[in-house]
């Protein structure tokens, strides 16, 4: 290497970054400097060879592995990505479903207590202590229901993600989700209708 100060110019010349005037000066120099001409050839071959660098070994299953690691986090962060409309829709639907469920449960319990017998129900309606105990029992029932939901949620989410990842290209999940919402709403409505129908038929007449 006879001209260390020209090493950078040689590379810039090869990559086309050298200004025209400097390029002409370098070309003139190359005609009289064998070392620089050899270095120029060396850089040219080096740059060509670098483009031929071997790739990393093939990575079978990389996408599957990456997504398997990412999915739990995506589920965790999904709600952060919701738009305002999606948030309102999700919370609204949840509230409607929860309301329908609570209503049907209350009416069913009322009807059930009515069927226990007129005396017990009459006592229940008059006795404040009994009312308080009944409210506590109902609260325990609601809490138990919440615990069951919380227990089932991770498993349900895992099952959902497994189904979704395995059948993602084949199944139109959007319409299916809407259909499942509709089915739950219809079921809730039917339960309510049955409960009110039972009331109308006089199942609770003993309670009065």
């Amino acid at each position: 290497m006879a001209c260390p100060q020209r090493q950078r110019a040689l590379q810039e010349y090869l990559s086309g970054d050298l200004p025209p005037v400097a390029a002409r000066e370098l070309e003139a120099h190359l005609e009289s400097c064998a070392d620089c001409a050899r270095d120029l050839a060396a850089y040219r071959r080096l740059m060509a060879a670098l483009s031929e660098l071997p790739d990393a070994p093939p990575v079978p299953g990389l996408h599957r592995d990456v997504m398997a690691a990412l999915r739990p986090q995506l589920v965790k962060w999904r709600h952060r990505r919701e738009t305002r409309t999606q948030l309102v829709m999700r919370r609204g639907l949840s509230a409607v479903l929860a309301g329908a469920f609570a209503l049907s449960l209350s009416v069913a319990l009322w009807g059930w207590m009515g069927r226990i017998g007129s005396v017990a129900t009459a006592r229940f309606s008059r006795d404040l202590v009994g009312l308080w105990k009944s409210a506590q029992e109902l609260w325990q029932l609601v809490r138990l229901f919440g615990d069951v939901l919380r227990t089932l949620e991770p498993a349900a989410l895992g099952l959902w993600e497994a189904l979704r990842s395995s059948a993602a290209p084949l199944v139109p999940w959007g319409p299916l989700i809407l259909a499942s919402y509709a089915a739950v709403a219809v079921l809730g409505g039917w339960l309510c209708w049955r409960a009110f129908h039972a009331l109308k038929e006089g199942d609770l007449s003993h309670a009065s």
Binding site: D55, A56, P57, V59, L62, H63, V66, M67, L70, L74, R78, R81, E82, T83, Q86, A168
Partner: peptide
Amino acid sequence: LGLKGDERAFEELVRRYENALYHLAWR
């Protein structure tokens, strides 16, 4: 789409760049 919560769009981004990232990291 990913910002709107579309996970399939994000998965497509992963598919596009996972090999480039792997090669960079492996190098």
